[in-house]
C-alpha cells in the first residue's frame, strides 16, 4: 500500500470518509451508458451477420442473433479469398509486431546503454522524425514501391512499419529506467559480446514493455486501411480490411455480406483483446502509444 492510503485510513472519522468516497449511483449509470455505446455497434455487427436480409432490414429492428451466420460466412468466403486475407493480415501484423518489439528495443538499447560517436545527435534526429507526418507522402511512397517492384506485395506493407521513432524513444526510456549498468558491466567483464548482452540480459528485462509495443504494432497493422488500399491490387494479396471494401462492392449479392466480413475481420482482435486488453489499457495509460 502506498503512503497516501495509509494517510487516509488514519483519518479520525470513518463514517464521514465513507460518505465522501461513495460512488454515486448516477456515476455507475453514466458509465453503464458509456459501456453500452462502446459495445453495442459490435454486437449489432454480430446480429446482422447472423440474420437474412429480410430480417436485417425489417423495422422495428430484431435485436437478437439469427441462425444465418454460416450461410453469410460461406458467402463471404465464396465472394473474396477471405481465408487468404486473414492469413495475409496475420503475416503482416505479426511481422510488424515482432519487428517493432525487437528492432525498437535494439535501437533503444544502443541509445540508452552503449557509447558511440554521434549517439546524441542520432537520437535527436530520431526524436525530430516523430514530428514529421511522413504518412502524407503516399504518392512518392507508391513510386518508391513501384521502383522496387513491390507493388502488390506484402513486404510493401511490412517494411515501412518494422521500426518506429516513437518505439525507439519508448524502449530507450525503459532500458534507462529498468536496467542496472553494473549488471551489463559484469557481463562485459565475463566476455559477453554486445549482442549477447542485449539478447540474453537487456531484452528479457524489458520484455513487458517490448510486448506492449509489439501489441500496438500488431493491432494497428491489422486495422490499417489507406496504405494497403493503395499498394494491393490482386484479391489474393488483400488484407482483411481491403477484403471488407471488396465485399461492400459486391453488396448486390447480399446486403449482409460486408457486415459479416467486418465481423469476421474484427473477431480475431476481439479474442486477442480478451487476453491482452488489460495490457493495452495499461500501455495507453503509461504512454506506450501516441498518435
Amino acid at each position: 500500500m502506498n503512503p497516501a492510503s495509509a494517510f487516509s485510513t488514519a483519518r479520525p472519522t470513518p463514517r464521514r470518509r465513507r460518505r465522501v468516497n461513495r460512488v454515486p449511483l448516477v456515476a455507475y449509470a453514466a458509465l453503464g451508458v458509456m459501456v453500452f455505446l462502446s459495445v453495442f455497434p459490435l454486437y449489432w455487427m454480430f446480429v446482422v451477420s447472423t440474420t437474412d436480409s429480410a430480417t436485417a432490414t425489417s423495422l422495428p429492428p430484431h435485436v437478437l442473433p439469427g441462425d444465418n451466420f454460416l450461410y453469410l460466412a460461406n458467402l463471404v468466403f465464396d465472394t473474396v479469398p477471405f481465408v487468404q486475407a486473414l492469413g495475409n493480415s496475420l503475416v503482416v501484423s505479426t511481422a510488424i509486431g515482432v519487428g517493432q518489439a525487437v528492432l525498437c528495443a535494439l535501437a533503444g538499447f544502443a541509445f540508452a546503454k552503449l557509447h558511440f560517436r554521434g549517439r546524441n545527435t542520432l537520437f535527436l534526429v530520431v526524436v525530430l522524425t516523430m514530428t514529421v507526418p511522413a504518412q502524407l507522402a503516399i504518392i512518392p511512397q507508391y513510386l518508391v514501391m513501384s521502383k522496387l517492384g513491390w507493388v502488390d506485395t506484402l513486404q510493401a506493407l511490412i517494411l515501412p512499419g518494422l521500426v518506429s521513432a516513437f518505439g525507439i524513444f519508448w524502449m530507450r526510456q525503459h532500458m534507462s529506467a529498468t536496467i542496472d549498468d553494473d549488471l551489463l558491466h559484469a557481463a562485459r567483464v565475463d566476455g559477453a559480446t554486445t549482442w549477447q548482452i542485449f539478447w540474453r540480459i537487456a531484452f528479457p528485462l524489458v520484455r513487458p514493455a517490448a510486448f506492449v509495443l509489439g501489441l500496438f504494432g500488431f493491432v494497428n497493422a491489422w486495422n490499417d486501411f489507406l496504405w494497403p488500399f493503395i499498394v494491393l491490387k490482386s484479391p489474393e494479396r488483400y488484407t482483411v480490411q481491403i477484403a471488407i471494401k471488396a465485399l461492400q462492392n459486391s453488396r448486390d449479392i447480399d446486403l449482409g455480406l460486408a457486415m459479416s466480413g467486418s465481423f469476421l475481420a474484427t473477431l480475431p482482435l476481439l479474442v486477442l483483446f480478451v487476453f491482452v486488453g488489460r495490457r493495452l489499457v495499461q500501455g495507453i495509460m503509461e504512454g506506450a502509444f501516441k498518435g
Binding site: 458509456m34 459501456v35 462502446s38 459495445v39 455497434p41 459490435l42 455487427m45 493491432v219 491489422w222 486495422n223 486501411f225 482483411v240 480490411q241 471488407i244 471494401k245 467486418s262 465481423f263 475481420a265 474484427t266 482482435l269 476481439l270 486477442l272 483483446f273 486488453g277 493495452l280 489499457v281 495507453i284
Partner: peptide, 12 residues
Amino acid sequence: SVLVPYVTSVAA
C-alpha cells in the same frame, strides 16, 4: 470496455 472501439478497424 471503453477501449473496445479502439481495436475495431475503421473499415468495420
